[in-house]
Write a protein that binds this DNA or RNA. Structure first.
Lengths: 244, 244
DNA sequence: TCAAAAGTGTTGCGGCTACACCCATGC
DNA sequence: GCATGGGTGTAGCCGCAACACTTTTGA
């Protein structure tokens, strides 16, 4: 009863932020034994997996993520489904999938998740480490199947959510400076923020708590460290007006 | 090649607004020939269907909707996937599904859409008319499978989208009064809006166009009619600041 | 002492809220 | 003429944008 279900998969777009760039964690697919290396074929893919029969979708996605980053209980949101009947039409990619799964694949509908991880705290398992790569979202190569489309939609979703949900913190270390937070918003949203106004704004947030601690070892005035206070956020959350 | 795919379905939460209440279009399921009417069983369900093999997900949802409302090219958004392995666990419901589909159902992952329709312009086909019912979201009975959960999530999604997207118009007649628009927001969001301020606000919107026409046959001062100008909206759309 | 980033206040403007009365129509 | 909902203006407050200099540290 714990067979793989060859009709449904999950794919995870795992975002990370390295202080300068927004990145995505991609996997170098296995080479086939008889692969003809003269015929070039995309080698990078999103981490994903067919679901297994008795497994919930969210559980599948968590499993993929745990295997890949060593991280448990992290931010993970289902954001879309991709089910175009021709999404696996690329014959090279399909042959690869059949060979590696050992299953008779016909049509696969994939449930897409996006995840936010703290790059420095992630810890890929040994076996995957060598095949996993953080790639900047601005320098994505052609990926297998429809994975570029999936990432684009994940990015759009992330930008939208970031405007209304306090999820930026998920991409930063537990303790972070206001400058790091500002950079994160600037990079992901593609905007510039006035430093003073930004500080005034976030200074009012009850759920952004300053710590009695400063940066160390920087060759300039060290900044105070902050943390996201989840409990304060849950308490304070009040939905504001709407925009028509 | 156009068999039904017994692993994946679509379900549509079709919202309508009747000036006072937000409603959902539900279907009375067929009775089984040998159904024991002494054993009560939920009779209402969301309109939905297994997808067919060569059909895109969106196309399936559009098909369901066209059959049900006679409406084509209407607002339809995929908003979630429900894939809990035990979502079909209710043995009565499952027996019913097997009997009506004639297929060996094991696990079905369903892709959920929500749709906004103008109740008065919808026109269910003869065969469905008698089995389709508009039910207020405040008076929902127990439905089959996990359909109550699906509707709740659709409602949450609708409220969220309504705050940032101009989709309320989809629920109103092509020509509507400002009072109708205000009622719609008040009912769906569960808030009260100051009439003067509401008018001032929407008065500024370039994409809300007043028509040289008034209501007729009302026993009070007739209101001007407005329409949503989609082109003006597309042009004007500029993403505003973000909320952290 | 220099380089690099942290941190800080004020002013003007525009948008939001709160609030009460007259108007046009059908009956 | 009365009941019903349509339609209008103002004043105060708050939040947001614009803008430049001093401070603290390591090298």
């Amino acid at each position: 009863m714990n067979r793989l279900n060859p009709h449904i998969s999950v794919d995870c777009v795992i975002f990370g932020f390295d202080e300068k760039q927004l990145k995505v964690l991609l996997i170098e697919r296995e080479r086939l034994q008889d692969e003809n290396l003269d015929i070039p074929m995309e080698v990078l893919k999103l981490p994903g997996s067919l679901i297994s029969d008795a497994e919930d979708l969210d559980a599948s996605a968590h499993r993929v993520l745990l295997e890949l980053t060593g991280l448990d209980k992290i931010f993970l949101h289902q954001f879309s489904v991709f089910g175009d009947p021709s999404r696996l039409a690329n014959t090279k990619h399909l042959a690869w999938l059949k060979a590696t799964s050992g299953l008779p694949i016909e049509r696969v509908v994939t449930v897409a998740y996006y995840s936010l991880v703290k790059i420095k705290e992630s810890n890929p398992s040994e076996t995957l480490l060598s095949r996993a790569k953080w790639i900047s979202v601005n320098e994505l190569p052609q990926l297998v199947f429809d994975h570029n489309i999936i990432i684009n939609k994940a990015l759009k979703t992330l930008r939208k959510e970031l405007r209304t949900e306090p999820i930026g913190f998920e991409l930063l270390p537990k303790k972070f400076t206001l400058r790091q937070l500002q950079n994160l918003y600037e990079v992901i949203m593609g905007i510039n923020l006035d430093n003073r106004n930004f500080r005034k704004r976030v200074g009012k947030l009850s759920y952004l708590a300053v710590l009695p601690e400063k940066q160390k070892g920087v060759s300039h005035k060290p900044a105070f460290l902050y943390k996201f206070d989840k409990k304060a956020f849950e308490k304070e959350r009040k939905d504001v007006g709407f925009v028509i």
